[in-house]
């Protein structure tokens, strides 16, 4: 399978990763190679096989609905690029 510019732009949007114009060719070529690898799956007969999501047939464990975390927002926000009064700052969204 060979991807073109349109597909790369679509995938770039899905992944929220900007791809520069001069990178499109190489990204398309390498992703196409990976999709060729995926195509090897087609030949396998999987009729009647249940999809396997998880290695162990486990039931999701539940916990009591009680507060388990303490307020650490100052420590956790100390690694943020930009904060003010306990809020994360981003470029203005609403004019």
């Amino acid at each position: 399978m060979s991807l073109g510019k349109t597909e790369v732009e679509y995938i770039s949007r899905l992944a929220a990763i900007a791809v520069k114009d001069d990178e499109v060719g190489e990204v398309a070529a390498k992703l196409s190679n990976i999709l060729d690898l995926f195509a090897q799956m087609e030949a396998a007969d999987t009729q009647g096989v249940e999809p396997m999501a998880h290695p162990l047939d486990q039931v999701q464990r539940l916990r009591r609905d009680v507060i388990s975390e303490t307020d650490q927002h100052e420590k956790l926000q100390s690694v943020a690029p930009s904060t003010s009064e306990g809020l994360y700052l981003v470029p203005q969204v609403i004019e």
Binding site: M41, T46, E50
Partner: peptide
């Protein structure tokens, strides 16, 4: 498809 192969 990949999840089915995982089981196989």
């Amino acid at each position: 498809k990949a999840q089915k192969l995982r089981r196989m």
